[in-house]
Simulated assay, not measured.
Amino acid sequence: MTQRALALIDGEHYAPVVRAALEELPYDFVAAHLLGGTEKLREDADYGVPLAPELDRALDDHGAEIVVDLSDEPVLGPPERMRLASRVLARGLPYVGADFRFDPPELAPFPLPSLGIVGTGKRVGKTAITAHAARLLGRDRRLVVVSMGRGGPPEPELMEVAPDVEALLELSRSGRHAASDYLETAALAGVPTIGCRRCGGGLAGAVFASNVHEGARMAVELEPELVLFDGSGAALPPIETRRRILVVNAQQDPVVVTGYLNAYRHFTSDLVVLTMAEAGTGWEDLRDAATELAPVVLATVLRPRPAADVSGRRVAFFSTAPESAHGLFEQHL
């Protein structure tokens, strides 16, 4: 069946050229959205389909199943095109052009109350935010965490008891990844945690392969009141959660972290948390950019603290934080 399509067009192309393309391409074009370049248009320009003044309204009113981009420079450059692609993907629709196609990540429905915590990359503090959220939310409700990582187990693995140092050392000595996110969350949050793995990550966060679906079914069998799905790097758990938190390192380049298909991550999140928002680092520029995309943006800093009493003991502290943070940690500890 031919897909109902919304065309994105510009006035740099003459209307007869665009109309001929709409008739030739293998889509059922139901409307067109004019992006710009109107100074070259004749008043009687006829595209053979209705013109929609607003993108979101066009998608609502015409029931498009795909968005086809027939525009070009100078009306739509690469940054603007990626922002449009993000908006379309956030509506759950594919976005295609002459030599590209973007599809929204496929997210499976999930029957229980759920929260997703995802990031814009590695070293953004996502796992720390996940553990903190799990501790808070697990105080007064039955909570299960499903954690996805690049070093997760081949089959979903339930950790019902927080692992101690000896248990982690035993895993490491057996050749296992003893620092996987699910182990960290189980150890620090003290809630049941299911470890899963994934491979690959697309521009919008889709994964090539994972066992998260099996992990999600395992979580349902535990009959929790809430399930927290923890992403991996910039990859999304392939589950449709009811709410989503996006974790961003405030030291990242605002052009990158709110541009490209990272805009999609912002559009589909209910809350953006900016970590490492240290005084004097200029993180406010990123906050301003993120506020244009997401409904709520909060800034915070991260500081380590012992998970148990270490008074009077000699302690070594290891961290993956950049060297610039070492002085702050030393002063705090």
Rank of each mutant, 00 (worst) to 15 (best):
T2W: 08
D10R: 00
H13T: 09
Y14Q: 13
P16Q: 01
V18M: 04
E23I: 10
E23S: 11
P26T: 11
Y27V: 10
Y27A: 06
G36E: 07
R42F: 11
A45P: 06
A45I: 04
A45N: 04
D46I: 10
D46M: 11
Y47L: 07
G48T: 09
G48N: 07
V49A: 05
P50K: 02
L51I: 15
A52E: 08
P53Q: 06
L55R: 03
R57A: 15
D61E: 14
H62R: 06
E65N: 11
I66F: 07
V68W: 00
V68I: 13
L70G: 00
L70C: 09
D72V: 07
V75K: 03
P78Y: 13
M82F: 15
L84C: 04
L84S: 02
A85P: 04
A85V: 14
A85I: 09
L89F: 14
R91P: 08
R91Q: 14
Y95V: 13
V96K: 00
F102G: 00
D103W: 11
P104K: 09
A108P: 02
F110G: 02
F110R: 02
F110A: 03
P111E: 13
L112Y: 07
S114F: 15
S114W: 14
G116L: 09
T120L: 12
K122P: 01
K122L: 11
K126N: 03
T127K: 06
A128V: 15
A133K: 06
A134T: 01
R135C: 12
R142P: 10
L143M: 10
L143N: 04
L143K: 01
V144I: 13
S147M: 04
S147V: 12
P154M: 07
E166H: 04
L169Q: 02
L169F: 05
E170K: 10
S174L: 11
H177T: 09
A178R: 01
A178C: 12
A178P: 02
A179Y: 11
E184Y: 09
A187M: 12
T193S: 03
I194T: 09
R197C: 04
C199I: 15
G202K: 08
A206P: 07
A209D: 10
A209G: 03
S210Q: 06
V212K: 05
H213I: 13
R217K: 12
A219D: 12
E221P: 07
E221Q: 13
E221K: 15
L222S: 02
E225I: 10
L226A: 10
D230M: 05
S232K: 05
A235W: 08
I239W: 12
I239T: 09
I239V: 15
E240C: 07
T241E: 06
L246G: 05
V248S: 00
N249F: 07
T258Q: 00
L261S: 07
L261P: 01
Y264E: 05
T268V: 15
S269Y: 08
T275E: 03
T275P: 03
T275R: 00
A279H: 04
G280F: 12
T281P: 01
G282T: 11
E284H: 02
D285E: 13
L293A: 02
L293M: 04
V297W: 05
L298F: 08
T300G: 01
L302I: 14
L302S: 08
R303K: 14
P304N: 07
P304V: 05
R305G: 00
V310A: 04
R314K: 14
F317E: 01
S324E: 15
A325G: 00
L328F: 10
F329K: 00
E330S: 04
H332R: 10
L333S: 01
L333A: 03
